[in-house]
């Protein structure tokens, strides 16, 4: 979860050597280092397709899975790669890991996608408004983002879970709120950078109103930065949801979630490590793939130039 806190602080991205500056390329002797990640990128895209497929199937066609997520069908704690089609083994109650992981993917993906969309829409709008009007409007918007960022994010979610019964909706809503300030800052910064450019001045001079300038001029130009940041935020959100599930404060059973599966198996660690490491591996690969894709997008659009 430690990555969640860094999410609203894209300035940290400056730490990542996504692209060497020309002066450093000299030292790097040749351009080989830049080519290597493309295999990783393809792997990441392939993995995310599998995860999305699993999530989609469990949403619209749960019948394709050989066994249901809630019912035991064989021995408990079967090892992975021992049987077909249940090649991922079974959990402590003899339920299919394959089906449960697919349904877990559905939870993770819905939470991550919905939160990001809400974050992008609300955060982005606030950022654009702040960037266009500046002054008091900007101050108020900044104040709320600062206040939200003043909590270590998991703490805020935990505080909320002390008063609300966790459900898919409440978790998604909580995470969505948390993603807003990051997107506000990001769009604000890149929109402010844009609005000093000539074409915006020209548009203003030609009498374009705020709505037109915000939506026609500023919005499209903040898009690349927002897109690459969104992918990274999705990784962060999946970890955050996983952390809550791990603490038993997310979607209640029997609905499976990756963090919940890890939590349920934690006492089996020394005797049946695969019980823990199968869902851990799936979660890791997903987070890793999203990070790889996000880094790639960021390098491509060179978001670092916005100097957040």
């Amino acid at each position: 979860m430690s990555t969640l806190e860094t999410a609203p602080e894209p300035a940290l991205g400056a730490a990542e050597p996504t692209g060497l500056r020309p002066s450093q390329i000299k030292r790097a002797k040749s351009g080989k280092a830049r080519k290597r990640p493309s295999i990783l990128l393809w792997f990441a895209i392939a993995w995310m397709s599998i995860v999305l497929l699993g999530a989609l199937l469990s949403l619209i066609a749960p019948g394709v899975f050989p066994h249901e997520y809630g019912k035991a069908f064989g021995d408990a704690k079967q090892k992975p790669f021992a049987a077909w089609p249940e090649f991922l083994g079974t959990d402590g109650l003899g339920r299919s890991h394959l089906t449960r992981l697919a349904f877990g993917a559905r939870v993770s993906m819905i939470v991550a996608l919905v939160s990001v969309v809400v974050g992008v829409v609300i955060g982005g709008l606030l950022g654009l408004v702040a960037a266009y009007f500046r002054g008091v409007t900007e101050m108020i918007i900044d104040l709320f983002s600062d206040a939200l960022l003043a909590f270590p994010p998991l703490i805020l979610l935990l505080a909320l879970s002390s008063v609300y019964e966790p459900s898919q909706t409440s978790i998604t809503a909580g995470l969505a709120v948390l993603t807003i300030p990051g997107f506000t800052r990001l769009t604000k910064a890149s929109a402010i950078a844009q609005s000093n450019r000539e074409y915006v001045t020209v548009a203003k001079a030609m009498g374009a109103g705020p709505g037109r300038i915000i939506f026609k001029e500023l919005l499209p130009n903040t898009f690349p930065a927002v897109m690459s940041y969104s992918v990274i935020v999705m990784a962060v959100l999946i970890v955050a949801e996983g952390s809550l599930s791990f603490l038993g404060l997310s979607i209640p059973p029997p609905m499976p979630s990756w963090g919940g599966m890890i939590n349920a198996a934690k006492d089996d660690l020394s005797l049946y490590p695969s019980q823990v490491f199968v869902p851990c591996g799936v979660l890791f690969l997903t987070v890793f793939s999203l990070n790889v894709i996000g880094d790639r997008l960021r390098a491509k659009f060179d978001v670092r130039d916005t100097k957040l």
Binding site: M1, A235, F246, G259, L269, F277, N291
Partner: peptide, 18 residues
């Protein structure tokens, strides 16, 4: 390091304990 960056704390806990 980019791999390590993608390991959530609740996963590294298990790896270490294991």
């Amino acid at each position: 390091s980019s791999g390590l960056l993608s390991i959530p704390t609740f996963v590294s806990v298990f790896i270490l304990v294991y």
